[in-house]
Amino acid sequence: MIRRARGAVAALVLAGLVVAPWMVDDYTTAILARTLALALVGVSVALLTGVAGMPTLGQTAPYAAGAYACAVLGSRISDVGVVHVVVAAGAGALLAALTVPLVVHARGVIVLMITLAIGELVVTILGRWRSVTGGTDGLAGIPAVRPFWGLPVLATDQARYLYTLVVAAALVGAVLLLLRTRAGLLLRAGRDDETRLRASGHRVPLQVSGAHVAAGAIAGAAGSLLVVAQQYISPADFGFDTSALLLLGVVIGGTASVGGALVGAALVIAVRDWLFGVLPGHAPLVLGALFVATVYLLPSGVNRARGRLRPPSAPDATAVREHATVPELRA
């Protein structure tokens, strides 16, 4: 019953998203398209933070890698959007694979520190590697793409938005399917009781690495959507505040739920965009206060995430039992 109701709500939201560009003006449509890209990054954050138990503040790194690969390389290879998504996902996965050795042995808050450092270092590189990335000025004048061979070029904000929506929906669907397989089950088992899973012969570091690379690919693909939605990228799109906002959105959404991550991330990003529109001078102050207030109002998120952030050497029986009863990932 609940599952059917949830499915109905999801279908309703999706229908609303499809008709949205005809209900609002072009500017809002463009903002919506960018929010979709960021919500997709939020899904990759949830995959790592909630499902794999690796809280991350660095998913902007593969996101940026995907966006820049798409803008620099993709436009030289082809003008087909699908090719761009593949190039961007490959770049995100490559960056994630390169950083696997840094995070695979760490757990909990240390992953947070390392991923934050990785994300910030990537932004630093983007700002200084002028010959390729255009430095802090960013890359403008990125040519328009066509979604598929033989289709017309995406010329209007509505078309760009719908393209973003279709790709994002397809990728979210792929993540949901992946999490229903044995791999998704093992990933969650590794998060809940790593020692137990290791004892039965499973290679937890390998699973974690796989999740890290997969999340990198999703964030990279989201980067290519950002390029389409915004037609301009700069290091400011991938700052530390974006990571923190996405993590807050994912925590609001319940940490391990893909649907929750989508809604939470979109909500947080929308609030930020709205605040910067109505309060140009004091938006960060209000946003910071909202952060603090939200953290105070988050009992469920705190309880659900508590056990999985413990180091593997000290599994907490009550927390583990809690997880078993928490219905997760029905999105």
């Binding site: 809280p55 503040l57 808050v109 993590l247 925590v251 206060a289 952060f291 953290v295 998120g301 995430a305």
Partner: peptide, 11 residues
Amino acid sequence: NHLTQALLTFG
């Protein structure tokens, strides 16, 4: 947990 504390300090 650490996650919410880190988010609070970020705010």
